[in-house]
């Protein structure tokens, strides 16, 4: 029982950065913008997040620095793709290279410095309830934040007028424009939200996971966040399931190894990726034609005034 609880705790922690980054990207993509630069924004968030906390001692300042860094990078992306109508795939890849390089330059200033990690919630009696207490009431603040974020995004997308407009921009930017909605401005805001989330997700790594910055420490998690959005077929509810599933597979394969199950570890490591491909195909097939895919995703929009 204790092992199960421990595994769940690890899964929650491992899934949180993926969930935060994917939530942001989901909103971005729902507005019709495909930003492949998540990895670059995340690593910048990690570097600036650690820098902020290291300089001020405050986790909140660090998280804000990470968000701002991610948002600034997404602004570059938005200027390119929305302002200048440049191809989104190419710009996203360029953003990743740029972010990795810049984070290395910024991070060089505090390599080897460590900070105190974000504290975990501790409510004297509920947290100490034997099973489930720590899972429900013993996480760091980011875990709760990530869940609040996805609930808020779900509410926003489906329960508010602004959310409806945002989805309309993603589904058919020509009609949305014809109806008088400022497509580009909405996409700009959605892209910036995605950038802030990616930055926050990156900042989570040094602030709550491993309290130091090392160049390249995101190690491909930005790409996984991108995959999760598709895996979830752009639905917030499924995104939570997807993120935790991915976190669970990557943690469980470590446990399987520790328990001495003799499958080559490369196959275990490949499992999450294979699972994503299979689920992607299965889901796409089940929903006949991909009705939840934003129809205008990744396409350039230039309003003809």
């Amino acid at each position: 029982m204790e092992l199960v609880e421990a595994i769940i705790l690890s899964v929650l922690a491992a899934s949180t950065p993926l969930l935060i980054a994917a939530t942001g990207e989901l909103v971005t993509e729902r507005s019709g913008v495909l930003n492949l630069g998540v990895e670059g924004m995340m690593i910048m968030g990690a570097a600036c997040g650690l820098g902020g906390t290291w300089l001020t001692g405050s986790i909140i300042v660090g998280a804000l620095c990470g968000m701002i860094a991610g948002m600034l990078l997404s602004l570059i992306f938005a200027t390119m793709t929305l302002g200048l109508a440049v191809n989104q795939v190419a710009t996203g890849l360029a953003l990743t290279i740029f972010g990795i390089g810049l984070s290395g330059l910024i991070g060089a200033g505090f390599v080897g410095e460590r900070i105190a990690t974000a504290p975990h919630l501790h409510l004297p009696s509920p947290t100490d309830v034997p099973f489930g207490g720590r899972i429900l009431f013993g996480q760091d603040g980011f875990v709760y934040l990530s869940l609040a974020l996805i609930v808020a995004v779900r509410w926003f997308l489906y329960r508010t007028r602004a959310g409806l407009v945002l989805r309309a921009c993603g589904d058919n930017h020509v009609s949305a424009h014809a109806l008088g909605y400022p497509v580009l401005r909405i996409r700009l805001l959605a892209t910036m939200f995605g950038g802030a989330c990616a930055g926050l997700a990156g900042a989570y790594l040094p602030l709550a996971y491993t309290p130091f910055f090392i160049p390249g420490m995101t190690a491909g998690r930005g790409w996984i966040a991108l995959a999760l959005v598709v895996f979830a077929s752009w639905l917030p509810g499924r995104l939570v399931i997807g993120a935790y599933l991915f976190g669970a597979v990557s943690i469980l394969q470590l446990h399987a190894q520790g328990a001495g199950i003799g499958i080559p570890s490369q196959f275990m490591s490949a499992l999450p990726y294979l699972a994503t491909v299979i689920v992607l195909v299965a889901l796409s097939r089940a929903r006949s034609g991909g009705s939840t895919t934003p129809a205008s995703l990744g396409t350039v929009f230039v309003p003809d005034r």
Binding site: I7, L254, G258
Partner: peptide, 15 residues
Amino acid sequence: DPPKEADAAKALIDQ
């Protein structure tokens, strides 16, 4: 891969 190394350490301790 710092986060993965951290996960591995957690898994070992949990076991």
